[in-house]
């Protein structure tokens, strides 16, 4: 596994999060690690700090992790999760201001070439503008 910036997808819906992650896998391939967190413990709509932390930890790399979020609470909970990561890992994790699906694909495409987290962020955030 090459050390590329990893992607985490956070949605209120588990199906949306998983679907976006699947799409990134199929379109971009295996060289970018993707994890997702979506839905609540009981299968409802929502986001969960513990699940987001676990997703970030799964793919965490020194190179950085780009997090794509959908609506309000997903961002709040992702910020909380990043702050609560141990060992200062959160410093290498950023929430991107881009739509979940498109942003994840663009971010992963940029990441696949070995780009830095700042470059990944710029590509995802410029999309559509």
């Amino acid at each position: 596994m090459s050390d590329n910036v990893a992607i985490v997808i956070v949605s209120h819906s588990r199906d949306v999060a998983k679907g976006a992650a699947d799409m990134v896998h199929q379109m971009v391939g295996e060289e970018v690690r993707v994890a997702y967190a979506g839905g609540t413990e009981d299968g409802g709509l929502g986001t969960d700090v513990a699940a987001i932390m676990a997703a970030i930890e799964t793919v965490w790399t020194e190179k950085g992790v780009a997090v794509l979020v959908d609506l309000g609470g997903a961002e709040t909970n992702s910020e909380m999760a990043i702050e609560m990561l141990p060992d200062g890992k959160g410093e290498k994790v950023q929430i991107l201001d881009a739509p979940v699906v498109e942003g994840a694909v663009m971010a992963a495409t940029e990441a696949a070439g070995g780009s830095s987290l700042a470059e990944v962020r710029a590509t995802a955030e410029d999309f559509g503008s």
């Binding site: 929502g46 986001t47 700090v49 513990a50």
Partner: peptide, 18 residues
């Protein structure tokens, strides 16, 4: 606070937790 963040879920967990 940290227990609430991890267990409450939704938006209120992080808010009460914070």
């Amino acid at each position: 606070g940290t227990t609430l963040v991890m267990k409450v879920g939704g938006a209120s967990g992080p808010l009460y937790g914070s």
